[in-house]
Nucleic acid binder design. Structure first.
Lengths: 213, 213
DNA sequence: GGCGCGGCTTTGTGATCACACTTGGACCCG
DNA sequence: CGGGTCCAAGTGTGATCACAAAGCCGCGCC
């Protein structure tokens, strides 16, 4: 068995991580129906590990479970989306603030580098890549907060929003790099916690707000 | 099939809800080792549904999974506990504030009734009952916030703290009803959002703070 | 008396199978 | 032409089995 980042460990875990990543990054549309046997066929495993993986994802809200036991990616109501946006704007400024005193120059450099990657993906119209790199920007910053439980909670929110974010991306035609990311970097440089909190909140809220149409 | 709250639906789901409740309410000590076959024996089912139930609980942080696949109730580090306490003090005041405009007199009455139950359980030294009723106080209030995703997130935190709260209860010898619950009720009556937020934060933080010993 | 080391037991993993339920659609009747 | 019915394929559920790895205990050696 190889120990690469992709195919390591137990089958159910590999399947879990793979599906989780695909959902979080918007590679699956909302409402997509999945079957245990189908997933098992795709990954070359039997139903048993598939069931474990999907149950885990259901517990995290990444998949929704119908009354008859069928799993599908969730199609969120507007209320739900706004609530998840509230959670992001509650948790993420806190994480950013905690990361602020620990943020050194190398970190800011990495964030700027990620920003240029985002700009490229906007040009290429790569929806999934854009979502992935955008989340990487946030995760890179929050990792400095040394708050794994809080980060895990935020990632759960991202996961629930994954399919919806994909749908959202189609509607909005970006042409410019989100200016809030630049504001975040600027606040990190000056060490201004209040400005940082505001910039993160604005960045988190902006995209999701126009979904209440 | 009966539709009672206890034995309804699929075996794995019944097992999941039962275990989740026991963990959240502190009926299991931290570090308790569980085996799939053992749980299956206890509940009279085979390993398959047990695996699904435990995987769900692992995904929620209610159980921790060792490298070799063994499950046990988590034994939290002090850092972890403080972080979870921070999450509570971040999320719960927000939920309370959202519930405030919707809180009517009947709700306040129910909360006071729950408070008297808590006082009785303190006298009876009923640790698990105390935890259960205390959480019921909070849940009853937060349900009015009409924010299911946020409430689910808070319950996840409660779940992770369950075994630790049980251990905590042993150390602290309560003799009086937490005065913060009375402050919460008072703030609800007067409609003072700021006082409510403070009271909830204080209530959430008090017990967990003295765990950093 | 302490410390490895061997085998045995327990445990998790994954495949397979039988069964019950849901579902989708063709078919028939009004 | 529309709506209800019934059947067949598909799907989730749970039990059982074979297997590999981990853990545990006692024996024997130093």
């Amino acid at each position: 068995m190889n120990t690469l980042s992709d195919g390591a460990g137990a089958a159910h875990d590999r399947l879990y991580r793979n599906l989780r990543s695909r959902i979080m990054h918007g590679e699956l549309p909302p409402g997509e129906a999945l079957t245990l046997r189908g997933l098992g066929r795709d990954y070359g495993v039997s139903m048993t590990p598939v069931r474990e993986a999907t149950r885990r994802l259901v517990a995290e809200g990444a998949l929704s479970l119908s009354a008859s036991g069928r799993v599908s990616t969730p199609a969120l109501s507007n209320d739900r989306i706004e609530e998840l946006a509230s959670l992001r704007s509650l948790l993420e400024p806190e994480l950013a603030a905690r990361a602020l005193p620990r943020a050194h120059l190398a970190l800011v450099g990495r964030l700027e580098s990620i920003n240029t990657t985002i700009a490229e993906q906007i040009v290429k119209q790569d929806a999934s890549g854009y979502i992935r790199t955008n989340l990487e920007f946030h995760r890179t910053l929050y990792l400095r907060a040394q708050a794994p439980a809080m980060l895990a909670m935020v990632e759960t929110v991202w996961l629930q929003l994954g399919p919806t974010m994909r749908a959202l991306y189609g509607r909005l035609n970006r042409t410019e790099l989100p200016k809030n990311h630049r504001l975040i970097v600027a606040a990190l440089r000056t060490g201004d916690e209040q400005a940082l909190r505001l910039a993160v909140r604005a960045d988190v809220t902006q995209g999701l707000r126009l979904l209440a149409s």
